[in-house]
C-alpha cells in the first residue's frame, strides 16, 4: 500500500455559539466531533454526507482555513496546525482547494490571468516574464483558451469558472487538493466535463484528492475510498467497491437507497428515513443516528458505537454490525 500523504487524528472543530449583549459563548456547534482517517498518495478519498454533517468543515480544517479545536492533521508528517504563519504560507502551494460556488469563488474585479497567476508571483515561484506563459499553460490544461486570460469572471459560464478555479489551484503544482463540492452547482452535461478533467489531471500529475460531496453517484465514479459522515462523525469508511457493494451502516444504506436512479423499470426497496437531521449544537446521546435509524435498539441510545475495522479496511461505527 502506498504511503499516507494526509493523516487526520481525532480531529475536532467546534464553533462557539454566541449570545447576549456581551456576545458570550453559550454553547458549541460540534461541526466535527473526532474524525480520523488517512489519505494515501495519489488516491481520492471522498467525504459524503448531508448538509450540516461537517464534511466541508473537515476539508477546511485539514488545510487550516479553520483552526482546529482538538486533534492533529499531518501533511507528509508535518503537523499543519502547529506551524507558524510564515511556515504555513510556504506550505500553502502544496495544499490547494477548489470551491463549490463558481460565482463567489472568483473576485469579480480581478482578471482571470491575475486570479490564476497572482499566487505564483506572490510566492516568488516565477518571474514576471514567465508568468503569462505559465498562466496560459494552466488555463489550457484546464480546457480554457489563452485569449481568456484578459477577461473578467462575469464573462464566463459556471462550468468555465470552475475550470478557472481548478487552474488557479493547479498552477501552484500542489500535491493535495481539497475539492469542496466542485460539481454540485453545475448542470449534468458540464458536470461530466469537470469530473473527467479532475480525473485526467489526477492521472497526469499524481494528485491526491479529498473529494467532498453529497452526490453519491458522483462519489462512486470518482473515489478510491469513501467515508460517510453524519453529524460530525464518520460512520462508515471503506474502499469504493466495498462501500457501494456492501454498505454496513444503516445510514449508508439509507443514503444509497434514496438516490434516484434514471431507470423507470428499476423497482427498489427504499429505506425512507424518518424526520430531519438533528442540530449539531445539540446532538443526540449515544449513537447520533439512533433518532432516525429504523433498526435502533436500546444500546444505541446510550452507548457511542466504536468506529472499528470489520475486515479489509472497512470501518464502521454501529452496534448492529
Amino acid at each position: 500500500m502506498s504511503e499516507p500523504l494526509i493523516e487526520v487524528k481525532n480531529l475536532k472543530k467546534y464553533f462557539p455559539i454566541r449570545g447576549g449583549v456581551l456576545q458570550r459563548t453559550i454553547g458549541y456547534v460540534k461541526a466535527v466531533d473526532g474524525v480520523s482517517f488517512t489519505i494515501n498518495k495519489g488516491e481520492t478519498l471522498s467525504l459524503v454526507g448531508e448538509s450540516g454533517c461537517g464534511k466541508s468543515t473537515v476539508g477546511r480544517t485539514i488545510i487550516r482555513l479553520y483552526d482546529k479545536t482538538d486533534g492533529d492533521v499531518l501533511f507528509k508528517g508535518i503537523p499543519i496546525h502547529s506551524l507558524k504563519k510564515s511556515e504555513l504560507r510556504k506550505l500553502r502551494p502544496k495544499m490547494q482547494m477548489v470551491f463549490q460556488d463558481p460565482f463567489s469563488s472568483l473576485n469579480p474585479r480581478l482578471r482571470i490571468g491575475d486570479a490564476v497567476g497572482e499566487a505564483l508571483l506572490d510566492h516568488g515561484l516565477v518571474s514576471k516574464n514567465e508568468l503569462r506563459d505559465r498562466v496560459i499553460e494552466a488555463l489550457e490544461m484546464c480546457g480554457l483558451a489563452s485569449y481568456h486570460i484578459d477577461r473578467y469572471p462575469h464573462e464566463f459560464s459556471g462550468g468555465q469558472r470552475q475550470r478557472i478555479g481548478i487552474a488557479r489551484a493547479l498552477i501552484l503544482d500542489p500535491e493535495f487538493i481539497v475539492l469542496d463540492e466542485p460539481v454540485s452547482s453545475l448542470d449534468v452535461s458540464i458536470q461530466a466535463q469537470i469530473i473527467n478533467l479532475l480525473m485526467d489531471l489526477q492521472q497526469q500529475k499524481g494528485l491526491t484528492y479529498l473529494f467532498i460531496s453529497h452526490d453519491l453517484s458522483v462519489v462512486e465514479h470518482i473515489s478510491t475510498r469513501v467515508a460517510v459522515m453524519y453529524l460530525g462523525n464518520i460512520v462508515e469508511m471503506a474502499s469504493r467497491d466495498e462501500l457501494f457493494d456492501h454498505p454496513l451502516h444503516p445510514y449508508t444504506q439509507a443514503l444509497l437507497s434514496a438516490v434516484p436512479i434514471p431507470d423507470p423499470d428499476l423497482k427498489r426497496e427504499r429505506i425512507i428515513l424518518e424526520g430531519d437531521i438533528p442540530s449539531p449544537a445539540n446532538p443526540p446521546k449515544g449513537c447520533k443516528f439512533h433518532t432516525r435509524c429504523p433498526f435502533a435498539k436500546d444500546i444505541c441510545k446510550e452507548q457511542v458505537p466504536e468506529f472499528r475495522d470489520v475486515g479489509g479496511g472497512h470501518y464502521v461505527a454501529c452496534h448492529l454490525v
Partner: peptide, 9 residues
C-alpha cells in the same frame, strides 16, 4: 453523462 449508482465506468 450522468454517473449512476451501481454502474461503474
Amino acid at each position: 453523462a450522468k454517473p449512476v449508482i451501481g454502474r461503474r465506468q
